[in-house]
Design a protein around this nucleic acid. Structure first.
Lengths: 207, 207
DNA sequence: GGCGATAAAATTGGCGCCAATTATGTTGCA
DNA sequence: TGCAACATAATTGGCGCCAATTTTATCGCC
């Protein structure tokens, strides 16, 4: 997060988005430009551009003359967001089941196990990264890049929920069980079951 | 498109997006900053910010040191985009049917008729505006703002298709028939039929 | 001490300059 | 005439300055 030399604007925006995902900034907290300059070794201008991008992506909100912050989203919006996520992520399921192969299945199983381990002993960042890898790998199978990208943008919009900011250990273990159940459903080529699991995964709690 | 005094950045981006929708720029054509300054009476800085926003929204593409243009999207991406649109817009249908009321139905019918008239005698801009109003009104009924917003962003990403740039008169009349059929399906509270129509509307041709 | 007013510091954000790059025009040569 | 090399014009885009605004600190008064 520190020593990379030249960064493109998009990359910086993604880095900041990831930092938010990892909980580096809590909902409502101001993202001061000076801090971001230091933290990410970027120029002021690049920081501003990246923040702008995140505003458009609705990962953060902008208040004139105050700055940028992780928006605290209200329950209404959170509900709407989750509805759409369920819709889109379950819609991707049939294509995923149709395209799954043994190698990918094995890789998913590895990641599910790794997540389980990280829940017990790993850092927050590790958990987040493994979880992210797991879902990325799965949704990539949909074969639809637009769909895949949409899924990630929607995920980043729910970060302002205080509910999901500090996932309880219990919630993490539930996520772990969900992951393993998903792998099992994939192994059985059971689209219906996988869709059910995906929906539950989104509605219960985040990771 | 000319005399508005002070404009916010977001508004300018939307104005440019609308201009693209209306066909002011054809796919592949460069959007020169100087032209945009004049056309929209905005400062250079605002234009740049707006273009940036449109890049993030994927309505246009950016080529370093060359500038911005309406991206010519390939058939692969267009296919992926349409798949997602079908997915999302049909998903909105049940909620729409559940919430439709007489007043809105009458208003939709008016718009459908107005579009039919515009196809025969109106300008491209009028057709686009009425068509936009029709679909906006319909999707607003879904009661999910996130869903509604998503639908419009996805629509704007297909503008680079040369296929849909100059809709044939025949295609416009087909759209007109679709609109009336949608109103009929709504009047009959027939969600299945409406979903079928929406999907066909997207897959055949755009407006 | 509490509290409002005032001053100082910190932060954001609009804007313009100009270097880097690309596009266009011109000249010279085969 | 065709074409390559060069010169000139047009355009983009990085960056820094500073005004506007907000936040924090200080002071004076009740």
């Amino acid at each position: 997060m520190s020593t990379a030399r030249r960064k493109t604007r998009r990359a910086l925006a993604d880095e900041i988005a990831e930092a938010i995902r990892l909980g580096a900034f809590r909902p409502g907290e101001w993202l001061r430009q000076i801090d971001l300059e230091e933290k990410f070794r970027a120029t002021r201008f690049d920081v501003r551009t990246a923040l702008n991008e995140l505003v458009v992506r609705k990962a953060i909100e902008h208040v004139p003359n105050r700055g940028h912050r992780v928006a605290e989203i209200d329950v209404e919006t959170l509900k709407a967001l989750r509805e759409v996520r369920v819709l889109i992520e379950t819609a991707a399921v049939p294509a995923i089941v149709a395209r799954i192969d043994a190698a990918t299945l094995a890789r998913l199983d590895d990641l599910a196990r790794a997540f389980g381990a990280a829940v017990e002993t790993g850092t927050r960042a590790e958990q987040s990264r493994i979880n992210s890898d797991f879902h990325h790998l799965m949704y990539r199978l949909s074969g639809n890049p637009v769909l895949e990208e949409l899924i990630w943008n929607l995920r980043d919009r729910a970060r302002g929920s205080t509910l999901t900011f500090w996932p309880s250990h219990e919630a993490l273990r539930r996520s772990d069980r969900d992951h393993h159940a998903m792998v099992a459903a994939l192994a059985a080529r059971d689209a219906e079951e996988l869709a059910r699991l995906v929906a539950a995964h989104i509605l219960k709690d985040d990771p």
